[in-house]
Write a protein that binds this DNA or RNA. Structure first.
Lengths: 130, 130
DNA sequence: AGCGCCGATTCCGTTGCGGTAACCGGGGGT
DNA sequence: ACCCCCGGTTACCGCAACGGAATCGGCGCT
């Protein structure tokens, strides 16, 4: 194993999970703010640095994760740990409370995998009779 | 079991479910539009007339259910049946696809019942240290 | 000295969602 | 004739969320 402390940064953030074609954008669920769900997914495998969270979010400005993370911290869903080291390092991790949301996300994803195509088909049929 | 084909209009819409203190407003989940979840709950027990849906929504104008219902109809979540009778009557019912969302709503509610107090406590502690 | 990295924060513009108000149209009752 | 009920629809307004650009500050490297 590469790292004993906890998580594997070498298999960190499944890129496929975040690419633009991910049906997340279409699925009729929302957990907290727009990006909260994705943050939870990112942190699911262990603590992450701020910059790491931006990897899948490379399209967005740092404001997005920063804002989301602080809101989640207020709600007791993540912890923020700033290390006063030379290259500033900050790590975020899910709290137990935050982890309780994972099953919900799983359920939402499962629903989407099963039923989202039907929903989209219905929408297309009704919205674009052409 | 009471009846699957029909529904009981005498125990129609649990008022407690919709009163302003319901934590729905605070819970960090969203299914579709703001009112979609509530519509599903309303239709869970069987078809409802437009006016019936407004009972728990008595605070809102007809636009809200109308809009929500049409969006859900487009997505294949509900069916709309207009009876060309004397007093105009329209009934809405969940489709099988729409019913697949019920477990999600149940899961969201279960989460809220279990964990929402902790989240609110954390928010209060962090947001209002005073 | 200047550049760049890390980790943010703040401001600002836009967009979309949510909500209120007003209007429509037919039938029946008084 | 008038009003009311049922079942909507449309137009308009306001706010909060979303997203982007610009800025900040310490430190190391060149």
């Amino acid at each position: 194993m590469a790292d004993a402390t906890a998580h594997d940064r070498s298999a960190p953030l499944d890129p496929d999970m975040f690419h633009p074609l991910c049906p997340s954008s279409a699925m009729p669920f929302r957990v907290g703010d727009k990006w909260s769900g994705m943050v939870i997914r990112c942190l699911q495998g262990g603590p992450r640095r701020f910059g790491e969270l931006r990897v899948p979010l490379k399209a967005v400005t740092p404001k997005v994760p920063s804002e989301t993370l602080r809101a989640m911290e207020r709600d007791g869903l993540v912890t923020r740990t700033a290390y006063d080291e030379n290259p500033p390092r900050v790590e975020y991790a899910l709290t137990p409370l935050g982890r309780t949301l994972i099953p919900l996300l799983d359920a939402a994803r499962a629903w989407s995998e099963t039923h989202l195509p039907a929903l989209l088909a219905a929408r297309r049929a009704a919205g674009q009779p052409a």
